[in-house]
Design a protein around this nucleic acid. Structure first.
Lengths: 331, 331
DNA sequence: TTTAATAAGTTAACCGATTAACATTATAGC
DNA sequence: GCTATAATGTTAATCGGTTAACTTATTAAA
C-alpha cells in the first residue's frame, strides 16, 4: 500500500502539499495535476488509522438499536446508511438486545471508535442515555429526550392513532379495543392520547376494560385480543398500535374464527407485507421508516457540520393509512 | 483521554511493559497489579487508531449484504454479531443494494478499514467477488465459491426442497407447481434439484409448465401463482421456494378465493411470522438463519486465528419444516 | 526597481500504541 | 559467591497522515 510520501515524491512536492490538496486547500494548478496523477497511478488511499490518530475524527457514526429482528429497526439503518454513505461517512451498527448494560458497553465501544455522531433507539432511560455523550452530536429515534440536549425523530404517533380511531368511529364503532405497548416505552403514551383525543372529539368515553397494555410482543397482542373478545360485551373494533401487537391480534382473531372486515373491524400498525398478503387485506397505519432514518441522518450531519451539539430539534414524520378491507361499518 | 504513557507513569513502569501486559505478555505480579490499578483509576482504553496504525489490524470484520429489507439478511447480522462481539470484534455492515458496482466500492472501503475478515452474501459473480481479497479470510453465505478459496455457509437447500416435495407427494399430490428464483442466484439451482430428485424418487416426472422461474420478489410470486392457476389443469399443490415468492403466492391464492389447506396445498419458505399468523397456518420450510450467521462468524474467527485463508470449507445448515395446515390430502 | 503583502510550499513535531533491539534483574547450577 | 541462563524491563524507532510554524515564490503597489 502506497503512502502519502510516495505520492509526494512522485508528484515532486512535499507531503504537506499533498495532504492539504487532498483536504481541499488550494494549490497551484500544476501541482494539483501532478498530485492527481500520482494518486491515480499509485492508487493511493489515505490511511484511516493515521488520519484518525491525528485528527481524532473518524468519519463514522454509530447506530445503536435494541434488536435487528424487526423491519422497523433495519429500515432505519437503510435510511441512515443511504444518507451517510453519500457523504462519505461509515456506520457502526450496534445491537444491545434490549439490555441497558449491553447498551452502555456499546456506547463505550463507540466512544473509543471516536464516532463523529450517534443515532440511537435507546432502550434505557433517555436522560441516562445521553449522559456522558456531551460534545458528540446525537439523534434519538422514537423517543423524546428528557434532557433535551439532542435531536429526536419520531412518527407523528398522536395523529396516527387519532386518524385510525376516527376511521373506526366514522364506521359506527364506539366499543373500540386498543392494544397498547408498555408505558416504559415512549410511543405508547402518544398513541394512547391520540386514541383518547379522537374518542372525546366524538363524544365517546374510552372504557378502561377496552384499553389493554402489554409488551410489544406477538404473544401479548395475542392474549390481549383474546381477553378483549371474552368480555361480556366485546369490542366491535380493535386498534393494534404496533407491528407485533398486530400480528398477535390477527392470529388470535383467526383462531376465534373471526374474520376482520366481516365479523370484527381491525386496524393494525406497520406490518405492511402481512397486511397486503392477508385476505381481506388489513388496514394499517404504516410508519415511513426509511424517511425516519434519512431525517435522523440529515439532522446528524447538520449537527456535525455546524459543530452545534446544543441545538435540539424535534422532527415528526407522518404516518400513512394503508387501506385494506378489515374495517366494516356497523349500525 | 488518558494515554498509555500516563498509565505507565502512574504504575511506575515503561509504556512497553504496559503495552505488553495488556496484550497478554507475562509481567511481574507487582507490576501487573500496579498497571491494573492505573488502568482502572484513569479509565484507560487503548486508542484503536494508534493500535491499528501500528499493527495494521483492526479487530473488525466487514459484512456485505444486498439489502436490509429482509429478515433473512438482518438475522445473519444478528448471528454474526453475537459471535464476533463476544470475541471483541466489531462489525462494519455494508449494504450494496444489489448493485455490483456499489458492492465493489464497499469492498474497497472495507479494505481501507483494514478489516480482519469478511462475511458476505455477494450479489456479483462469486469468482469476481473473491478476486482482490487474497490474504483476507472470507466466508460467503448462500453461495458456493467457484474459486474455492473461501468458506461457504448455506442451508441444505437440496434437502429442504426434497422434504417439502416429498411431503406433498405423500399427501397424494403429483401435479405440483414450483416457484423458483432466478438461475443467476445460487440457491434456486439447489432447490430445483431437490424438487426434481423427490419427484423422480417417487416415479413422477416434473412437468415444465408447473415449474416457474422469476426474481425473488413478491410480485413475481404473485404472477407466477396466477399463471399456474390459470393453466388448463392447474396444479393441486404449490411449493414456493423463498420468502417473497411465498408472500406473493399467498396473496394471489387469497385473491382467487382459494384457501390453502382446503382448496389447494401450499408449502412456503421462511416467512415464519406470516405462516403462524395465517389461518389456516401455513406449512413452511424455515432456514435457521441465526445459525447460518453464527456458523459464518465462527468459521471466520477460525480462519483469522489460524491465519489460513486457503482452507475452504463448506458448511451446511439444516432447514426445518414448520408444519401448519396448508397441506391437504387428495386422492 | 524595490518593497510590501499575499499566496503557496516545506519542515518537522505530533497523535498513541507496538515492538525490535538492547539492558537489567532474577534464578539455577556449581 | 559467581557465572550462565532465563525472565522481565526499557529505550527508541515506527506506523502514516496532519498541521503549526516557518520559508519561498508571486503579485500588487509605489
Amino acid at each position: 500500500m502506497p503512502n502519502i510520501a510516495e505520492v509526494a515524491e512522485l508528484a515532486g512536492v512535499s507531503t504537506a502539499t499533498v495532504s492539504k490538496y487532498l483536504n481541499g486547500v488550494k494549490v497551484k494548478a500544476k501541482n494539483a495535476a501532478a498530485i492527481d496523477a500520482a494518486v491515480k497511478k499509485l492508487n493511493f488511499h489515505p490511511n484511516d488509522f493515521a488520519r484518525g490518530l491525528r485528527t481524532n475524527k473518524s468519519m463514522s457514526v454509530g447506530v445503536i438499536l435494541p434488536e435487528l429482528d424487526n423491519l422497523f429497526f433495519t429500515s432505519i439503518i437503510s435510511g441512515v446508511d443511504e444518507i451517510l454513505d453519500a457523504q462519505g461517512y461509515s456506520t457502526f451498527v450496534c445491537i444491545c438486545r434490549s439490555d441497558p448494560m449491553r447498551e452502555k458497553k456499546k456506547l463505550d465501544f463507540l466512544k473509543r471508535k471516536k464516532i463523529d455522531g450517534l443515532i440511537a433507539v435507546p432502550c434505557s432511560d433517555t436522560s441516562d442515555f445521553v449522559k456522558g455523550l456531551e460534545g458528540i452530536p446525537v439523534v434519538l429515534i422514537d423517543r423524546l429526550s428528557g434532557a433535551g440536549n439532542c435531536s429526536c425523530v419520531l412518527s407523528d404517533n398522536f395523529s396516527a392513532a387519532y386518524n385510525a380511531t376516527e376511521k373506526l368511529i366514522s364506521c359506527g364503532h364506539s366499543k373500540i379495543g386498543v392494544l397498547l405497548g408498555p408505558d416504559s416505552n415512549y410511543t405508547p403514551i402518544e398513541r394512547r392520547s391520540g386514541f383518547t383525543a379522537a374518542m372525546s372529539t366524538h363524544m365517546l368515553t374510552p372504557e378502561p376494560q377496552y384499553i389493554k397494555t402489554g409488551a410489544y410482543r406477538i404473544d401479548c397482542g395475542y392474549s390481549m385480543t383474546k381477553e378483549l373478545m371474552s368480555l361480556d360485551t366485546p369490542p366491535t373494533a380493535i386498534f393494534a398500535t404496533n407491528n407485533e401487537l398486530t400480528i398477535g391480534a390477527v392470529t388470535a382473531l383467526s383462531e376465534l374464527g373471526l374474520i376482520p372486515g366481516k365479523d370484527i373491524s381491525l386496524i393494525g400498525f406497520d406490518s405492511d407485507t402481512l397486511a397486503k398478503a392477508m385476505n381481506p387485506a388489513l388496514t394499517v397505519m404504516v410508519q415511513n421508516v426509511g424517511e425516519i432514518g434519512r431525517a435522523a441522518a440529515n439532522n446528524l450531519l447538520e449537527q456535525i457540520k455546524s459543530e452545534s451539539t446544543g441545538r435540539s430539534q424535534i422532527i415528526r414524520v407522518q404516518t400513512e393509512m394503508l387501506e385494506g378491507n378489515s374495517v366494516c361499518s356497523i349500525e
